[in-house]
Simulated assay, not measured.
Amino acid sequence: MTRRTEYDESQAAGRLRVPIAAFRWARHTGLVPTPDASSYQWSRATVEAMDADAIRASLPHEPISAAAAADRIARALGTPNVPGEPPVVSAFAVRRLIACGLLTDLTANPEAVLINPDQVAAVCGIEGLAQRLADEAPLGPDQAAARLGVRRVDFDYMRDLLWVRPAERREVRFGTSRAGAVMVPLFTTASVDALPAAHPEVDWEQLRNVGKGRRSPLAALVKARQQEKEAAAV
């Protein structure tokens, strides 16, 4: 049987007989060194030199889900999430904190985020956290259009112009069947709020007062952009 000479993180954790979450946390803290065999693999010698007991001890508590982390953060801010009501702090916000580097995901599965509860507690003490979470609050396309005071079609043109991009897409079900599920793009509140200042070339007052069924002032910009792409492709 051929001996393995290189290990990815799952294989290394298995070799050391430590939970993958503990291995990922130890890597985050520097206890596990940077991969030396490739960008994501460790050599056999490096894995064998790792201290399995220290890796286990680095994560003394069971990791928690994004939803549980959101609940803890909401309580710490004095605005607890209430079951059955829209959350003050959502799992989306927690995933954004991960994207910002303030929290560390301990699983490779984006649908099953796991976080060190001690790190969540530390994040709860960050100054200005409430405003940061407000900036990261999710908005669907209709909500984003309403927040800007424009029609949904106008916001869709902004997306076509690449003025704003979704932070992520989540599956939303209508009814109990998966056949009724659609992927909905979610935008951060901050990215939507930044649009007017980022594009002063647009007459926002005019845009906000375009009547129903009238052509959007942004349509010409979209057409011009498409023509530029077509010209560049020739």
Rank of each mutant, 00 (worst) to 15 (best):
P35D: 01
A66H: 02
V47W: 04
W25Y: 13
R151D: 13
R44M: 08
K229S: 02
D203M: 11
W25N: 05
V123A: 12
V113D: 07
S65P: 15
R208I: 09
R214T: 02
A49F: 04
L139P: 14
S38Q: 11
P60N: 10
Q143C: 06
V222D: 12
D51F: 00
P35Y: 08
G128P: 13
L106S: 11
L129R: 05
E9H: 10
R214F: 05
A99N: 05
A130H: 00
Q11M: 09
E111L: 13
G30S: 12
L207Y: 01
A112K: 10
I98S: 03
A231K: 02
W163T: 07
D118M: 11
A67M: 02
A69V: 07
V120C: 14
G14N: 09
S43N: 08
H61D: 14
P141T: 10
R4F: 05
D118W: 09
D105V: 06
T5K: 09
E228D: 11
L221P: 00
V150W: 08
E201R: 11
R152K: 12
P138Y: 00
A49S: 15
D36Q: 07
R159P: 00
I98T: 11
G14R: 09
A145V: 05
H61L: 13
H28W: 04
H199P: 14
E6I: 14
L133K: 03
S43L: 03
V88A: 15
I55Q: 00
L103G: 06
Q143H: 07
I55V: 04
P60V: 13
Q227T: 04
Y40H: 13
I64W: 01
A122W: 05
A68R: 15
R152F: 04
T46H: 01
R132C: 11
T107I: 01
G128H: 03
R56W: 04
S39H: 09
A219P: 00
R215T: 15
V234D: 13
P185A: 03
W42N: 06
H28Q: 15
W42H: 01
Q143R: 10
E62S: 09
D51L: 04
Y40S: 15
T79R: 12
W163A: 08
T176V: 11
A231H: 00
L148W: 04
Q131C: 10
M183I: 09
S177Q: 08
D203W: 01
P60K: 13
R96C: 08
R72V: 06
V123Q: 04
I20M: 03
V18C: 10
R169V: 13
L31D: 04
T46I: 01
Q11L: 11
I20W: 00
L114A: 15
G175N: 12
N109K: 10
S90P: 15
F187K: 03
Q119R: 14
P86A: 01
T188G: 01
A231Q: 00
A233M: 08
V120L: 09
L103N: 06
A74K: 10
V172P: 00
A21Q: 15
M158S: 10
D135R: 02
L103P: 11
Q226N: 12
L77D: 05
E62N: 07
G211K: 04
E9Y: 07
T176M: 12
E230H: 02
D118S: 08
A67C: 03
A144F: 05
P196F: 06
V123Y: 04
P110F: 14
I73L: 15
H28V: 09
L77N: 06
